[in-house]
Design a protein around this nucleic acid. Structure first.
Length: 290
DNA sequence: TTGTGTTTTATTGCCTCC
DNA sequence: GGAGGCAATAAAACACAA
């Protein structure tokens, strides 16, 4: 063994030495130390002391290592002989022993040397067995604790996820509501704008969907158009921008109070060419001549 | 009875602490 | 460097279905 402690090995039988023999012998020698006659343990004679008691159940007369030597007919040599031919068997602790250990574990899951000795005495076990039991018990406790923690975290996660999902739903719902309200508002604004638009009808297109400029231009005779007055940027695209401008309340409302009749005429062209009531900043096309 | 999965007891090797 | 704790693991004991 490269490291760690050296314990009587139950598995080391490479030399043919009986498994656990040293433990058995040790038990026999330590026995008076663990179970003083003055304070007899309720667990005396328990099968839990590493022994062959149960392993001998079926194949040989039942006896523990403690009464084995009390039998006059069985000598130590005979015992050794038996040991050499018996494979070691693990002993399970009795219910009483386990209850005792559990109670002790509840008090403190760590084992000081004095307590270990005392427990071993009380239970009729080797201190090493008590230490191993505590060690394994701590491992089981830790596993259980991890499972508990996992369950707790999972429950919390599920709860949070449910909350999160609810919030997402509510958010979508509110979003939808905002969209609907925005839509309504937009419609209302459009309606309002259209009504305002109709108030300045003389300046604007009645039907923005029409293509008045194109139509009016097409209706015009080529010779009627003074090419010097036709802006070079005149196009469908330009026309579209005019319509957009109208639609977005980008309206020109000139103060007509001081305009001359001629000017008024130019501001109110004939229906056939009424498209030119759209103002564009810097492009006084309403003053075009035909 | 037997095969299989689970639990319990014990070992091993490594690590930390004093 | 020894004692003791821990993780990983072996192996016996046990439970249980087929």
């Amino acid at each position: 063994m490269a490291g760690g402690r050296v314990y009587p090995s139950n598995n080391d039988s490479t030399d043919g030495f009986p498994n656990n023999l040293s433990v058995l012998l040790q038990n026999q020698r330590l026995h008076p130390l663990f179970i003083p006659e003055s304070s007899p343990s309720p667990f005396l004679g328990t099968r839990s002391i590493v022994s062959f008691e149960d392993s001998l159940k079926t194949s040989r007369p039942k006896r523990s290592i403690f009464n084995m030597f009390d039998e006059q007919e069985n000598g130590y040599d005979e015992y050794l002989d038996e040991c050499f031919h018996q494979p070691e068997k693990k002993r399970r602790l009795t219910v009483d022993q386990i209850q005792f250990l559990e109670k002790s574990f509840e008090v403190d899951n760590k084992l000081e040397p004095e307590r270990k000795i005392q427990l071993a005495k009380d239970l009729g076990l080797q201190p090493r067995q008590v230490a191993i039991w505590f060690q394994n018990r701590r491992a089981r406790w830790k596993t259980k604790q991890l499972e508990k923690d996992y369950d707790t975290l999972l429950a919390k996660y599920n709860s949070l996820k449910a909350d999160y999902d609810d919030l997402l739903k509510e958010k979508d719902k509110l979003k939808e509501e905002v969209l609907q309200l925005t839509d309504k508002l937009q419609t209302k604004e459009n309606e309002q704008r259209n009504s305002e638009f109709s108030d300045v009808k003389p300046l604007l297109l009645q039907e923005p969907s029409q293509k008045p400029i194109v139509v009016s231009m097409a209706a015009c005779k080529q010779e009627d158009i003074d090419s010097d007055h036709i802006p070079q940027y005149y196009s469908d695209e330009f026309h579209s921008s005019l319509l957009e401008a109208a639609d977005s309340s980008y309206l020109f409302e000139p103060d007509q109070s001081d305009l001359s009749q001629d000017e008024e005429d130019s501001l109110h062209p004939p229906a056939s060419s009424s498209n030119f009531g759209f103002p564009v900043e810097g492009h006084p096309f309403w003053s075009w001549t035909y």
